[in-house]
Design a binder for these strands. Structure first.
Length: 289
DNA sequence: CGGGTTTGACCGGCGC
DNA sequence: GCGCCGGTCAAACCCG
């Protein structure tokens, strides 16, 4: 199975486009996504999913640009209950345990409730739904990775059985309630685990400023966001060399087996934006409207 | 002075 | 019911 197109994966919190040449048998574990040309700055493979799971294309094309997280997570949730395969790396499994197994029920409490928290007791019957979360595991010496958005730290906690604290961040943009947590992996301190929750309601501030002034794509990997008509930066932490593990977590299902890996392979393309301009401008854009 | 960080206190969920 | 623990708040602090 092969196709060439631009696919916007709305499930990701960063409006992630795959300028892609896909080769896949339709199963997650066989999926690979070569980005750009042969030297591709990244590929992605899905691991740990059974044959009965929907194909990546089903998931990509069924996702919708909405904040309704139940619809966002509906397809992956079918995947999530499958058992992991032995191929699943220990480190990714550890991430799943760390990120999903614990209670996070009050994470999405709206701001009004938060401000009134200490004055009024919260209604018990309102069980808040969790946002879909994405955990990136990145080998980096820097804890807080540059991702094109501005964040404000609102807390830090020490985590049980870990000598490294966990930082809590919110997107500084008004009306954008995306949060992220940053911590170091217990099993490998050189790995930074960044967990995103929610979807940004605005483009990357760093990129859009430059694009607005020049009309040209900024240096580094980028894509043209047809929705906002600006150049955007795909979410790739800009530390090289590095490898990143990406796991999708479903808010309704605490056990996660859907494990994917994302790995950048070159740093050359990070500076060759003329090449990327050729590569990443979509000729076909698959997108829900 | 405004915006971001630090850090101790507080809250609620959960397991025993 | 109690204690543990993760997540959040908010005052104090820092910095450009």
């Amino acid at each position: 199975m092969e196709s060439k197109s631009m696919v916007k994966w709305e499930n990701l919190p960063f409006s992630y486009y795959f300028p892609a040449s896909y080769t896949s048998t339709g199963m997650w574990q066989d999926f690979s996504c070569e980005l750009g040309d042969n030297s591709s700055w990244g590929f992605m493979e899905m691991l740990g999913v059974q044959d009965s799971t929907p194909s990546i294309f089903d998931i990509l094309q069924s996702s919708t640009p909405t904040h309704d997280q139940t619809s966002l997570a509906s397809k992956p949730s079918e995947v999530v209950n499958q058992p992991t395969t032995p191929n699943s790396s220990a480190i990714s499994s550890a991430t799943n345990d760390e990120q999903i197994g614990k209670g996070v029920d009050h994470e999405e409490e709206d701001e009004q409730q938060k401000t009134q928290k200490q004055l009024k007791p919260k209604k018990k019957c309102e069980k808040r739904q969790r946002e879909a979360r994405f955990a990136f595991m990145t080998k980096s010496e820097v804890d807080h990775l540059e991702d094109g958005y501005r964040w404000r730290k609102y807390g830090q906690k020490s985590v049980k059985n870990s000598s490294f604290p966990r930082g809590y961040y919110r997107c500084t943009s008004a009306a954008c309630n995306v949060k992220k947590r940053v911590e170091r992996s217990m099993s490998d301190p050189s790995i930074v685990v960044t967990t995103y929750e929610g979807k940004h309601t605005h483009p990357s501030t760093v990129m859009s400023r430059q694009a607005a002034s020049t009309g040209l794509p900024p240096p580094g990997p980028s894509f043209f966001d047809a929705a906002s008509l600006v150049w955007q930066r795909p979410f790739i932490p800009h530390h090289s060399p590095f490898s990143t593990h990406l796991s999708y977590t479903n808010p309704t299902t605490p056990s996660v087996t859907e494990i994917s890996r994302f790995r950048t392979t070159t740093s050359a393309l990070l500076t060759d934006h003329s090449l990327l301009q050729d590569i990443l401008v979509p000729s076909i854009v698959k997108k829900e409207s």
